[in-house]
Amino acid sequence: MGCFDLQQNTLRDLNAELHRQGDLLRDGGKADTEWEVLNPRGSHAVAVGVDGPLQITVCGSVGYYCGGMNQKGEIRIEGSAGPGVGENMMSGSIRVTGDASQYAGATGRGGLLVIEGNASSRCGISSKGINIVVRGNVGHMSAFMAQSGNLVVLGDAGDALGDSIYEARLFVRGQVKSLGADCIKKEMREEHLRLLSDLLKAAEVTDVRPEEFTRYGSARELYHFDVDRADAY
């Protein structure tokens, strides 16, 4: 297992090393696939741009954009994450054992982001295929303009959930403070229960049942232009 101490080495060295390991794997070479990152102390951009099936454990809290653009990497953050954790993630997984700050998983295209604590505002904003599972609550404007993918919230959601949402699916187990424009409560059909069951399983959540959730999604009245609704745009 490789170990990187951010008190001893620079962030740039860490990310270059992780990128190099991804290159080695792609070229069919031998690579160190397990990494431990010590003393992140709130650093920005830890393990950004990972491109390969590496297992990375970050021992402590991180700042902005940890695991951004991740492809195939399995990143575990033992602590809390600053703004934009997993921003534009493509695939792989990120698990945050603490809380996540604003816009967790923003614009994510794929992969799984699990937040064991709470996520603050704008969680999953503009998501494009990412799956996000939050054990705690999410803040206001979560899933704003979310285009596809799933947001699963075991706790409560703040104001304006799913404002201007496209085709992402939202599952909330607790209370929703308010729904955003064009976001509505929807029927939970068999296919949704199955999907939710798979998502919970992938996130290793075993103590709640899919039936405890309510589904929300787009009323599809805002993103098809209709001159009679011009006032609402």
Binding site: R41, G42, S61, G63, S80, G82, D99, S120
Partner: peptide, 19 residues
Amino acid sequence: SEYRALVNLPAIERARVWE
């Protein structure tokens, strides 16, 4: 403004930290 600003405070690892 960021958690980074707090990391040198005594016993920060045992503090209640929140947004």
